[in-house]
Design a protein around this nucleic acid. Structure first.
Lengths: 208, 208
DNA sequence: TACATAAGTTAGAAACTCTTACTTTGACAA
DNA sequence: TTGTCAAAGTAAGAGTTTCTAACTTATGTA
């Protein structure tokens, strides 16, 4: 079952773990060359199988990338849950933590991040993907409600959560697109996130 | 020189206006099928030339798409200048107008909008593109400074302009990616933009 | 042990990008 | 008016790529 890392040659006809390894190869390639440049052929070369092999495991290229997406969203979600946990519920710190994870994930895995968006639209959105995305957004809404001192999410909470999402989403893209370097001065992400959370979630914003 | 729209046949060997028509065909295709699905071959079919013809005018596919980008940025810029003009300098209305153009452009030309970003990064950013993008951002910075009652752009203005940019950028993407439909309630763009401009540019934000 | 099936392979069709070598044509100088 | 050159087409094809079809090998279970 083992695959020789150097030659890609296997010691048995069957690979044993091809599906998983193809997804991992795809993830690495998407990160290295960007989602657009990714090719199934190259993933096959890495995994050491013929170019027809993936089609026993995935309907097509899109479905392969979709799996990369889904794993990415799970990682993002896990990081959010992890990073929020040290902070007391109902504090702005938790909101800031969520934003920090979002921006950091985009920074650390720009290829997968790009794939996660700008991909959903192309495909008629797989149900699993939709569910995942919605779940994460609900998480944010809940935090906003807690900040307001309530367990119930109301319309205004959703609006505000959406404002926060828009902001970190844009910030993430502008960063990985290198637009931040155009802004001559360095922007401190942490204080920017805090500033935004304050301005969006507080009704009275104190003068700077 | 004329090209028969139906058959794509020309009445002369030379096309006469191929470069321009290829760019226009590319724009349409990018809009119809998305930037990823665009193919030079298809643009050739529309223009009624052989698949080798474009290479007399463009280095490669990328360069062709880059022209689509540049024209898009010019359109966006023109709309901004247009939409800002009726409002008195130094008013929030002008900031809101800029945001409205940004979001509307993304809505009306999602293909080109997507191309404009997520493309710049791939290519080592053509100088013309860089210059264009920077120019538009400077426009926003100037408006922010005026809101503050000064002609000079200071560090804080740049920061705030960047916050505004991040926001409308994220909002635009989330909209065209259909994430807004996840938010069960409808978000009114105009009032959202006003709300954001107020929260980002005002030092005292009145209670809702 | 037999054998159905899962999971590989080879071969190849269809599409795409881009190059090379050739052809047509318009423009301009003599 | 005519000769020539460069610009802008074409045809042909090399090299990739995605995906399918038909075939082969291994595995797990009756």
């Amino acid at each position: 079952m083992k695959t020789d890392q150097k030659t890609g040659k296997r010691d048995s006809y069957h690979h044993g773990d091809l599906r998983t390894q193809l997804i991992e190869a795809a993830r690495v390639l998407v990160e290295e060359k960007g989602p657009e440049q990714f090719s199934v052929s190259e993933a096959c070369r890495i995994a050491g199988v013929s170019t027809a092999a993936p089609y026993k495991h995935f309907k097509n290229k899109e479905e392969m990338l979709q799996e990369v997406c889904i794993l990415g969203m799970h990682r993002q979600r896990a990081q959010m849950v992890e990073e929020v946990s040290p902070h007391a519920p109902g504090t702005l710190d938790r909101i800031v933590a969520l934003g920090r994870v979002y921006v950091r994930f985009a920074q650390e895995e720009p290829g997968v991040f790009r794939l996660m968006f700008g991909f959903a639209n192309e495909n008629d959105d797989d149900e699993a993907l939709k569910e995942l995305g919605h779940g994460t957004f609900t998480l944010v809404q809940q935090e906003v409600a807690w900040c307001r001192g309530s367990d119930e999410i109301n319309a205004q909470d959703i609006q505000r959560a959406f404002l926060l999402w828009s902001f970190v989403h844009g910030l993430s893209f502008l960063r990985i697109d290198g637009k931040l370097s155009k802004v001559d001065l360095s922007i401190d992400i942490e204080s920017t996130l805090t500033e935004i959370a304050r301005r969006v979630l507080t009704d009275e914003v104190p003068a700077d």
